[in-house]
Design a protein around this nucleic acid. Structure first.
Lengths: 339, 339
DNA sequence: CTGAAAGCGCTAACAC
DNA sequence: GTGTTAGCGCTTTCAG
């Protein structure tokens, strides 16, 4: 089966291939008749435009590179879901790359994107990304670069993320309003902006409501279900007194719940628990886990829209346009003491 | 910043651009010295190969199109994760498309892939895909086409999926071996191959172990948490007697558990429950949900490997090479009556 | 080991 | 309204 090009169509109709090209692209200066004839022949010959050739000539690929740490993490796959949806509806395709939280893979991905001449790049950086020359390269090539969720402040690029400070604040405030007074907060060992912001929100909410900030109640470590359990075990053996837990993310909160239940502690009557991220399991466990929703789908759609807006306005200059999405408080059983 | 091409490098070194091209591609007939010099200049000028031009000329894009119903579904994002990993390690990039379970979007995606001249397509069809001309088009263009999980038997294309029959069989057999005798099975209303196979496995396991197949115990409907609850409610009001439930997938099983617990039924002592799919929440709920693991990550890696193998052997002819992965029985608390 | 030359399939500026 | 022409940046014969 030989490949059919616009030349084949042209021959068939005894016109030049440039007329065919114009007809196919719905150029205004082509008569309706010609367009119709061209379309018919194209259909009959089973013609299919070669985007490669078109891209090479026009300098536009209609492809945007999306690089995320891993699709195994629901958060990222959900955002990519949103990005693909709106990009696709606007004629763009997604070239996908996973960095697996490795900076060198991240750099490779960007290199590939650049070689593929993508029309833009949307990224969320790895936890180990400390230098940004690979990202600067994108900017210096005038390729639009946007971030979501995990973005480097030193880069001056547009981004969409959730307001983690506010998330930490409302989670804590909710617990306070439910009557809890000694709220334990589990945060990350490493100084990662999003977790630091949640911590700040926690502290400010306490202060705002006239509660003491007790350093003993701020536990640092790796986040995981296992660590959540560990925290509760250690708290028990240390005789630490608390009546609520705000964990930096849901799996840790889950570990907390598991261990509390194992100790026979009543949730939410004796201890209230709230997580962060609104993982799918939260509404399925017993008691149902309260949490903060990060609007993942929305985040994807928002970056995509921001990208399209900047393309349209031809905003190539890097501006730190930071869009902050509202964190949503999801109150379920684990923290509802009052009615 | 003007774009630098192999011509710029050639001028710099007073050689022809074709020598540069060869040097860059590590052509054996180029002296080590020349290669070194070329690489240095390329580096200095910040040269970056233009894959578009290369693809146009060579007819190879090193891109493969992956089309799935939706990344929102953990199963698919997990498989895509696996595909991207091994494809990437082998020099391929992924062009991603979501059909959103719509056949026309699926057709659009394939159209785009074909226009983009991808080197291959990996797909999992929508639930509403009933005609296959868009897929036949791929085959007639000699573009390698592989499926995973949801594949059309009428198409004669290689596929990787799980052995659903066996999954249904071992799930049921496990319940039988735990001493359950009247096992209720929830299956799909619509005649979808994977669910039909699980049902067949269920029936055969009962027969194999000398248990009666009671049509009353086979409930058809839409799968969802809600439907799981409904089934139990209806069973109760109808006075249906059963001592175990095998649900076609985990969310439905979860609904079953919720409703049973609400009725004060003890799991697994009075009623055993097993799901299918090994969703993330299964190990987090109480009691922990037994299930069948579908080896999602492995499935992704396997299709990718199968693709690479066929490319290497230049197997363009469509052969129905069906790889069936082993379903894995995950016994957790919800079905462990014996020790 | 390197050079010359053709051309992949399309877009777009310039003619008429 | 349509034709002419010149590339986009590379790969790949064919020479030598």
């Amino acid at each position: 089966m030989k490949k059919v090009t616009i030349l084949d169509i042209a021959k068939e109709l005894n016109i030049t291939f440039s007329t065919v090209a114009r007809a196919l692209n719905d150029h205004p200066a082509i008569s309706a008749n010609t367009k119709k004839a061209v379309r018919e022949v194209a259909e009959r010959l089973n013609y299919r435009q070669n985007k490669i050739a078109s891209s090479l000539r026009s300098g536009k690929t209609n492809v945007i590179g999306v690089i995320v740490p891993s699709l195994e993490v629901t958060f990222f796959s959900s955002v990519v879901y949103g990005i693909e949806q709106v990009m696709n509806a606007n004629g763009y395709n997604i070239l996908l790359y996973q960095s697996n939280e490795k900076m060198d893979q991240e750099a490779n991905g960007i290199e590939t994107f650049l070689q593929s001449r993508v029309d833009g790049i949307i990224a969320s950086i790895t936890t180990e990304t400390t230098t940004f020359s690979h990202y600067e390269e994108i900017i210096s090539r005038n390729t639009p670069l946007l971030f979501f969720d995990r973005y480097p402040k030193e880069l001056n690029a547009p981004s969409v993320s959730i307001d983690d400070y506010k998330g930490g604040f409302i989670a804590t405030e909710h617990l306070i309003k439910q009557g809890y007074k000694r709220i334990l907060h589990i945060t990350a060992e490493r100084d990662i902006p999003i977790f630091r912001d949640r911590l700040k929100g926690y502290i400010d909410a306490l202060k705002h409501h006239g509660l003491e900030v007790d350093e003993q109640l701020i536990i640092k470590g790796n986040f995981s279900l296992q660590f959540g359990k560990e925290v509760i075990r250690n708290a028990k053996s240390a005789g630490l007194i608390f009546d609520a837990v705000f964990a930096l993310e849901d799996f840790t909160a889950m570990g907390v719940m598991h261990q509390l239940l194992e100790y026979g502690v009543k949730i939410p009557d004796e201890v209230g628990v709230i997580g962060f991220a609104n993982e799918a399991f939260g509404s399925l466990v017993t008691p149902k886990l309260s949490t903060i929703d990060q609007q993942t789908l929305n985040m994807g759609k928002e970056v995509a829209r921001l990208f399209l807006k900047r393309i349209k306005n031809n905003d190539v200059k890097p501006v730190a346009e930071e869009i902050k999405l509202e964190p949503l408080l999801i109150v379920r059983e684990s923290s509802r003491k009052l009615n």
